[in-house]
């Protein structure tokens, strides 16, 4: 579902951005012929929403950006120039964050976020990266997943199977603070006819 929201957002964004006729087509699914729509889809991943990276073996692909997905980003949109200390994070309006990952002693905001600037992520090497490079943070532990993700065996590609390869960031599917998928009721199942009488 999250990816669907993201896609919708993406399409709206594409519509706003490109203006010329793409607007209505992209958002209202059922209004244009297949081929025109496919072109819209192929063009619907504007360069500004993805960043090119080189995966293992030098395979070039693009990753969806994280920051445009975050409501109220950048932090200064709420916090002004003061910045926000991680100590007050949970109490001051980020109460929805249910931090259960990683497990154990490392479960602390500062394990991943820079204490003085939570919009920056802190790698084990000491290097800091933006939220758009969340995959680099995740890959530090989940290296097998990261390799599969770069190759195509993990994660999701956006919209098309051909042309530019744009994939979702780790955070495109997983909640970084609670990455496991929740239990929930499934969508309606099959109706198997009278199994017996």
């Amino acid at each position: 579902m999250r990816s669907a929201h993201w896609l919708a957002f993406l399409l709206v964004f594409a519509g706003c951005r490109f203006g010329e006729g793409a607007r209505a087509q992209g958002v209202r699914e059922h209004s244009v012929p297949a081929d025109a729509r496919a072109r819209t889809y192929l063009e619907a991943v504007p360069a500004e929403l993805a960043q090119g990276i080189s995966g293992p073996g030098g395979r070039y692909f693009e990753v969806q950006l994280r920051t445009p997905q975050i409501q109220g980003f950048p932090c200064s949109s709420c916090h002004g120039d003061r910045g926000a200390g991680s100590e007050v994070l949970v109490r001051s309006g980020h109460g929805s964050i249910d931090l259960i990952h990683p497990r154990g002693a490392a479960r602390d905001c500062r394990t991943c976020h820079l204490p003085r600037d939570p919009a920056m992520l802190k790698l084990l090497t000491g290097e800091t990266v933006t939220l758009d490079h969340a995959y680099r943070l995740c890959a530090q532990c989940h290296f097998a997943e990261a390799e599969a993700w770069a190759g195509g065996g993990h994660g999701k590609r956006v919209a098309t199977w051909e042309g530019r390869r744009v994939v979702l960031n780790c955070t495109g599917c997983h909640n970084p603070h609670n990455p496991a998928f929740p239990k929930r009721l499934p969508r309606p199942g099959p109706s198997i006819p009278r199994r017996s009488r």
Binding site: I192, P193, R194, R195, S196, R197
Partner: peptide
């Protein structure tokens, strides 16, 4: 049963 193991009888 069906090739996928579902048992549906015929009336």
């Amino acid at each position: 049963p069906s090739p996928l193991g579902e048992i549906v009888e015929y009336f």
